[in-house]
Nucleic acid binder design. Structure first.
Lengths: 229, 229, 229, 229
DNA sequence: TATGAATGAGAATTCATTCAT
DNA sequence: CATGAATGAATTCTCATTCAT
């Protein structure tokens, strides 16, 4: 058969991206085969090459898309007028939300850096660094204003980011704790870390879920665990 | 390196393990080939089968050895008689040391879980859980005794562990911060997290280096970055 | 080049033929892909099937067209009333002209015989034989009339044809020697071969270029070398 | 089965070379598949990679080996002390012999230049040029000494080489004409070309066959025609 | 007339693994 | 203890070809 009736390029490409994220998250980039991927999408392996010039480029496309999404979304959400504490609170909220909702993307972006060719690696890492710097900036501002007390803002950035990102490792959509509680818990921990212990008592924010950010095509959670720590 | 004449089996096996850890850390388990590994050790690919029954079993052996080493070492080091704060302090010290000195092993153990067959996965994850529980136990004891105040000890375990483990991601032996400073910094952060902000001021411990733990065959650091967060 | 609006079928088919000759001459039939070909013409690969039922049939069409052109053109040009020497002279003139002007076609016809299916191979080789026989006939007539002295007319046919055809191998339109000089040089050599050394001194013929034969759509010479010997 | 008993690397490599020459001569380099080749040798396709790093490198190895053989053999055979006529006679003898005995190699070397990567192409063409220059040298010497009369030695080199090489195109070991007759016939033609018509009467040389040159592993002729002109 | 989405068969290549020596 | 020749299955990728639109 020459063509599946009603097939459509844009739709197919998006289907490949989603399936790829799932498969790479589950098995790893090297372990995933294009046959598997194609089958998941309902294509022949060769057909993937209509959309991505190589397996390697597929990975790059996925990572860049994810990181750009993250940066863009944060740019839209961040409260430019808030003080350091407010900004930190917003960052934690954003990070937990995006890192639970897009757990697979995050996981892939963290695990598959070494599968990138040197040039692609540099491009991707540059974007990660830009995201990191958002937190560093907030922490530095807080230190400067006296809101936060940190012995080493650089290390604190790494430490807090690792702590927050870790949530994707064990979070399950069906688990005991829902996003709002998570945000509250992690906010408490981070506030303590930066020396604002009192602000940690903050209850779960009351913003309606609908207004809360980067969801995109919410897909059902796969049964796969995304373990790391 | 060509084969050393008169090399005995045990030496060769250890050489394979070390080379494997380096290669897997650098390229990933799937991406590493037995030919590469063999060449690094000065062998033919087929000869590896004298020491490990398969590539998969090699990985399992590596991970189990690492986790058992971690557990055993902590068992020897932990101060059974100290209070929660002392125990936590000791754990942080131990964790930072082991996760910087054996960065590659840690990295592999974190990244390659998905390369394991289900049964092996279970065995390895069980050991990881046992290590995790060491921290959970300390935190719970601290909460019970009133030394720590934590809204959710389970999540706090994850959060603190992620924070501490993250150090391996960016730590460089030649970097600005040496181990003792790192330990001090992270101790400060964790103490704040558990509500013992005042204890964070703790200076670098004065214990003599010889008594300080899990070193094993200190090898030169490779130039490779082990990125995750 | 994008598709020219209002292009009609015949024009497109001719464009495909030309592009195919160029590509096959440059890369070889097996190495040329229909996608390359299509792109050169400003089409999608599938569209070629409007004009040729398969890649193989395209090659056959090209070769048959070339050989038929050669035979037909020679039929029109050959001096029926001349003696053996005059006929040989005319043949050399014709052969050199056609094999320099249509170098690519000649090259393809010589190189791609093995890419033909058995039946097509037979058809094409039959036409080549017919062309060969034109020279054999002239040589035989010359031997019979005593104009030429040749120990083995069959071998001489092959030898002379190989010599003449070889010109396409190194001839460049921009080179030192132009067609008329070439014809003169080769005429000299061939005349010696057939034992008419004195006729070799013949100067470059004075016929006006316009009357000189098989040009067809003179295209710019590509930079590609067409090497064989 | 891990290994065919008694198999031996050097023998296998030579078998691959021979089979490759035959297959490439018959089908063309692009059309030959490594599976076919392997099957002819009694191997799995992948096993060829023990001997040649890629299909492309296999071709290069074949061509270089052939051309080096030709150059080296001619270096050994050429009569340094003979005059131009004697040298030309020796060259013709050598060329015909080598181009009939190693027809397949010659054919491949002539047809597959375009299958080479640019760098390899240059290397191979350089060797071909060196061989060509041997004839040019002889012709130039003959012109200088007055033995030969040629209006354009460069073109004559091409023409004579094309004529001689053409023999491989139609020569069949089982055909009417054997090598010695061929040498005599072509010697006659070439001598006429260079203006030494009288020397063409030369009979078949009386040298014992054993002393006559580049035979190497005489293999049975395949039924395949090697057509070009 | 032409596109563009897709197929499916087959290509080169890689690699864990085996085993006679 | 180790080699080196070989396997065989799988992988990425290519490409002629089809056909609904």
């Amino acid at each position: 058969m020459a063509r599946t009736t009603g097939s459509d390029g844009a739709r197919t490409e998006e289907a490949i991206r989603q399936a790829a994220i799932d498969l790479i998250a589950a098995r790893g980039f090297e372990a995933m085969t294009l046959r598997e991927l194609a089958e998941k999408v309902g294509l022949q392996a060769g057909s993937i090459y209509r959309y991505f010039p190589s397996k390697a480029q597929l990975l790059v496309a996925l990572l860049l898309e994810h990181l750009n999404f993250l940066l863009e979304q944060w740019r839209l959400e961040r409260p430019a007028d808030a003080g350091p504490t407010g900004q930190l609170r917003a960052f934690i909220d954003f990070h937990i939300r995006s890192h639970t909702l897009r757990r697979r993307e995050v996981f892939v972006a963290n695990m598959e850096l070494r599968s990138l060719a040197p040039d692609d690696y540099r491009r991707v890492v540059a974007l990660r660094k830009r995201y990191e710097r958002e937190l560093t900036r907030i922490l530095a501002a807080g230190c400067a204003s006296g809101d936060f007390t940190l012995s080493d803002p650089k290390v604190s950035t790494f430490a807090i980011l690792a702590m927050l990102t870790g949530v994707g490792t064990w979070y399950r959509e069906a688990g005991r704790l829902k996003q709002p509680e998570l945000v509250a818990l992690y906010t408490g921990l981070v506030m303590r870390c930066v020396g604002r212990a009192d602000d940690g008592a903050g209850r779960v924010p009351a913003r309606p879920a609908a207004a809360r950010g980067p969801t995109r095509k919410s897909r059902k959670a796969p049964g796969v665990a995304l373990e790391t720590h």
